[in-house]
Design a binder for these strands. Structure first.
Lengths: 146, 146
DNA sequence: CGTTGTTAGTTACAAAACCAACTGTTAACA
DNA sequence: TGTTAACAGTTGGTTTTGTAACTAACAACG
C-alpha cells in the first residue's frame, strides 16, 4: 500500500500534457523573453493582433480564452513599449481597438519566423500521420474536457 | 501584412499543448482544490509519495522536474496538514525522508480514484490506438524538446 | 427620461511562482 | 586535519497570477 503503488503518473493525461507543454514551450519562451522581454501573455496578444489584425481586448479574450485581466496587463505592457496603439470606438466608447505599430509588426514577424521553425523542428520527430492525429486530439481536448 | 496573416496559432504545437493541458487540468484541479485545499505542487508531491513510497525531496525533484523550492514549500504544507512525516537520515543528516501518514494515504487513494476515473473519461473520447499514439508522442515531447 | 442591468476594461489586494542567496552538512584532497 | 567545493533543503524579496471589486459607458424598459 505505502510502497510501489501501481498507478502511473506518466499515464495520467493531464499530468503528461502539462509536462509536454512545459518542455515544448521552453525554447520558444527563451526567444521571446531574451529578445523582447515578453511574457507568455504578451506574445499571445502580439500574435493575435499580428495574425488577425485590429481587434478589441474582448475579442482577443474570446479567441485565446485568456482572462481579461491578463489581457489588460499584457496590452498595457505592449502599448508602453510602442508595440501597439489603442483607439476608442466612436460609436461605443467602451470599446478600444488595438492595432500593432510598425515595431509591433516587426516583432511579430520575427517571432512568427522563430515559431514556424521551432514547430517544424518538433514535427520532424514524428510522421505526418501521427502529427495530424496529435493535433486533432489536442484540439478536441482543448475545446472542452469531457 | 497587418490583416489576415496566414500563420495559424491553433497549429503551433507549444500553444496547442498549453491549451489542451490547461483545459484538461481544470476539472481535476477543482477536486484537489475544493476537497483538500491543495495546490498543483502539493498533489504532485502527494502522488509521488503515494506511488513510489518513502523518498527524499531531491528524488521527487528528479522524477517530477519540479524546482526544489516548489517542493520544499509543498512538503511544508503537507507536513503541516499531517499528510506526511519527515525523518532525517542517520548517516547523511542533509537528507530527509518523506513518507505519507495514514491521512496522507487516504487523501492519495481518494484522489487517485478521481484521477483514474477522469483519465478514463478523457480516453473514452478516442480510440485505443489514437490514445496510445498520443501518449507516446507526449512522452517523447516531454522527455526533451528537440 | 430614469432606474436597473449589462458590458469593456482597469485596479487593488492576496496568493503563488521565480530566482538568488542562504544554512547546515558531507566530500575531496592538499 | 584544514580548507574549499558540493550538496540538500530553506528563506527572502521580487515578479506574476488570480479574484473581486471597481469605473465608465451603453441598453432595456417602465
Amino acid at each position: 500500500m505505502s510502497i510501489a503503488d501501481d498507478f502511473d503518473l506518466q499515464n495520467f493525461l493531464p499530468y503528461l500534457l502539462n509536462q509536454a507543454a512545459e518542455v515544448s514551450s521552453l525554447r520558444f519562451q527563451q526567444v521571446y523573453k531574451d529578445r523582447y522581454g515578453m511574457l507568455r501573455t504578451e506574445w499571445r496578444v502580439l500574435f493575435h493582433l499580428g495574425i488577425y489584425g485590429k481587434m478589441t481586448a474582448k475579442e482577443i479574450g474570446k479567441r485565446s480564452k485568456m482572462h481579461k485581466t491578463k489581457i489588460s496587463r499584457a496590452v498595457a505592457k505592449l502599448a508602453e513599449r510602442r508595440f501597439l496603439t489603442r483607439h476608442r470606438d466612436g460609436a461605443d466608447r467602451r470599446l478600444e481597438y488595438l492595432e500593432l505599430t510598425e515595431a509591433g509588426q516587426r516583432a511579430y514577424r520575427d517571432l512568427r519566423q522563430v515559431a514556424m521553425e521551432y514547430d517544424s523542428a518538433l514535427a520532424a520527430r514524428f510522421s505526418d500521420a501521427d502529427m495530424a492525429t496529435l493535433k486533432r486530439m489536442l484540439r478536441t481536448l482543448a475545446s472542452d474536457a469531457a
